[in-house]
Amino acid sequence: MALLTVENLGIGYQTAKGLLKAVDGVNFTLEPGHSLGLVGESGCGKTTIGMALMGLLPPNGRITEGRIVLDGLEISAMSEDELRKVRWNKVSMIFQAAMNALNPVKRISAQMVEAIQVHRPEVSDEAALTRVEGLFNLVGLPLERLYDFPHQYSGGMKQRAIIAMALALNPKLVIADEPTTALDVIVQDQILKETKELQRQFNIGIIFISHDISIVADVCHQIGVMYAGQLVESGPAEEVFFNSKHPYTQALVSSFPTLAGPKTKLAPIPGEPPNLTGTIPGCRFCDRCPKDTASCKLDHPQWQEVGPGHHVLCDHC
């Protein structure tokens, strides 16, 4: 059975200009122990999906349609009290900007003990501290730094502490929202490798949210490419990158400079993503698309299967 099933998910934000449909008609599943990379530019709805999976949408955001089912439990229909039991026990999150995710006036150990005891009140102080020590070993933090304050840590160490906290209660699913964006390349590389190793060791499902395809390409089994609130292409990582079909994925891949291979001219994507407050009748990418035809603007594109497990939301692929 799939660990996570997302069906026809739609999420809207109530704004002064009307309902902004940040996510529209998104479907995907995640098997236990697998990783899915959600990539797309800022504003495409990838963080919104992550927040919805945690039941942490801001007050003006709500799930307008569809369902999220995690491990047999329907997250999208839960009350706040029920959600609190699922959060951190079954699904946890590594937040964007780890620098700001730690409490600056509390020692790291105290924060991690607190995270454990809030969700498992029955755990004693000693047992929680033992668990924290175990987590420190797991993510490669030296034990003598247990009682430090966050400002005494480097960026990479803070990120490791955040990862340790996300793993504290053995969740089945971890949502990593841009976990390495603020880090240097060398630290980023180390953390990505360690995360991959931990995932294999504990058979955790990971949803990796990033704007940087070069990172998810190396880390994830499955890739979902998002554009303007919709998933536009999904499939096995190599398929999506080396055999991309959707014009947006192709543009995204060719706008990244690489270290190896021929030094081809980067192809910037002209234009800007559409405004999501109104209704968009046809394909959302057609204003920027080289394959644009008259019918693209009028009809919703349909999903096409272009390879085993490889799907594209485009009528011309």
């Binding site: 390349v185 590389d189 070069s214 390409a217 190396d218 990158f241 990244f256 690489t258 270290l259 190896a260």
Partner: peptide
């Protein structure tokens, strides 16, 4: 060399 090792290879790991 360490910087190049750490740069994501984007599926071209074999060439570097």
């Amino acid at each position: 060399k360490a910087l190049i090792d750490a740069t994501p290879k984007f599926g071209r790991a074999a060439e570097v």
